[in-house]
Simulated scan of single mutants.
Amino acid sequence: MTEFIRPGAVLGIVGGGILAFRLVEVAKQLGCNTVVLAPDEGDIALDAADMALVGAAHDPAALARLAEVATVITYMDENVDAAALATLTTARQLPSGVDILSVTQDRYLEKVFLDDLNMNILPYAQVVTPSDITKAIESVGFPAILKPIQKGVGVGSQLLLRQPADVERAANLLAARPYVLEAWLDHPTEYAVTVAKSDTTIRVMPVVQTVFAAHALQASVVPASGGRAVIEEIARVARVIAEHLDYTGVFGIEFFMTASLTLYVKRVFPGPQLNGHVLLPTTGTSTYEMHLRALLGWPLPNVTLVRPGVLLPLRADDRAAALTQLQIKPDWQFQFYPANAPLIGQVTIFGAAASVRQALAATDHFHLEMTETLN
């Protein structure tokens, strides 16, 4: 059972960026002191923390420094050295454990984990040598995408294969590392769901419909389209996965859905994610608070949707348009991040997706390009 930890504890966070920055903000609201370990001394999370440690998530010496001062530790960088972290911490310090990392750090092991649970996933195959690609294509088919087994390597190391001629280009990638070949869907509907787990308590938060462009999140929408059956199936899958993960805290699951309403589990990730930011303004509860409550042994509330809305992450080229809308849209909820952040901020527009789309189109800058399915 997760031990109850009082306010005043020191929360250690592995990893920086927007996610760690937001976690620091919420930790302070709950009465925790914070220490952040991030690789870049200019990281915004380091600036916000009570104590800053500069170092890599895979550096045992840096993790040891964090363990010396933190009451409880969480990782916002899934590329953390799991073995070192487990060795350097006590069970009380690391209530999440590291078992989830064996699933989320390795694409092949993630597929095996989901396969073992009878989850519906896209066809895949492990690829180590150039000859493996031809064999894998025979079972997976075209189009397919070649991804490094190790996550976090970067989208530049991925390759989309649409025809036999693409297989020859793929052979060069295998000189660097092993890969997974996975079937590719063109323009699927995408979803994400955040789950909070503490001992036997599992809370599935409202399903979010996500919109991506060039692998970057463009919008998070609630409620998600797709109909009751789809949403209920996502919640069912989330509970099954939660029951089979030895983990405390918040984690997320992403999904693909085809035009024929076939649902596939896309991936699992630990900790709060950017797509869940829409839940605070639309439910009143943040994924970061749920994560901390689980880690601290505090009870987890049920989270329900209060009002519909769309959240857009704001990037550098959105600055001028965002500042214009800030002055003329009193009902749009803006949040801006400190300088040097990967994003400049975010904006939430309340209302149904169709009305939000019209409002965004009228700005001549922002757009909501999403696949809508029947509710």
Rank of each mutant, 00 (worst) to 15 (best):
A64C: 02
V36N: 10
M51Y: 14
V26D: 07
A48S: 13
Y75M: 12
A49H: 10
L85P: 00
D77C: 03
I44S: 00
S102E: 15
E41I: 05
T71P: 07
A64Q: 12
A67K: 03
V54D: 02
K28Q: 13
Q93Y: 13
A56P: 00
F21A: 05
A38G: 02
T71L: 03
A56G: 08
D47I: 00
L46K: 04
L23D: 10
V24L: 07
A83N: 11
A52N: 04
D40V: 02
E78Y: 06
M51H: 15
M76C: 12
L94F: 11
I100M: 14
M51W: 13
L88W: 01
K28I: 00
G55L: 05
D59I: 02
T90Y: 11
V72T: 09
A27V: 08
A27F: 08
A67C: 11
A45H: 08
E68N: 06
A57C: 13
D40H: 15
D99P: 05
L37M: 11
D50Q: 11
A52L: 06
F21I: 00
V24F: 09
A70L: 03
A62E: 06
D77K: 07
F21T: 00
T90H: 07
P39K: 12
I100T: 10
L66T: 13
L85V: 07
E41P: 06
M51C: 06
S96K: 11
A49M: 07
A45T: 09
E41A: 13
V35L: 00
V35W: 06
A82W: 01
A52M: 03
A91H: 12
P60L: 00
I44F: 01
D59R: 01
A61S: 14
L66N: 12
V35K: 00
A52Y: 10
G31F: 04
L101D: 06
T90E: 10
S102Q: 14
R65K: 14
D81Q: 02
P95L: 03
L101R: 05
V54M: 00
A67E: 09
L101G: 06
G55T: 04
A52G: 08
V54I: 11
N79M: 09
V26W: 06
M51L: 14
L46A: 04
A67H: 07
L30H: 13
L53V: 02
M76W: 05
K28D: 07
V69T: 14
L23E: 15
V80R: 03
L37I: 08
A57H: 08
L30N: 10
P60Y: 12
D59P: 01
T90V: 03
V98Y: 10
I44H: 02
G97D: 13
D43C: 01
L66D: 13
L46G: 02
G97H: 12
D77I: 06
I73C: 02
H58W: 15
L30A: 00
L53K: 05
V80F: 00
A56K: 15
V72D: 03
D99H: 14
D77A: 12
Q93L: 02
N79V: 00
V26H: 04
Q93M: 11
A70H: 11
R22A: 04
G31C: 02
V26P: 06
N33G: 09
L101T: 04
V98C: 10
A67Y: 10
D50F: 10
L63A: 05
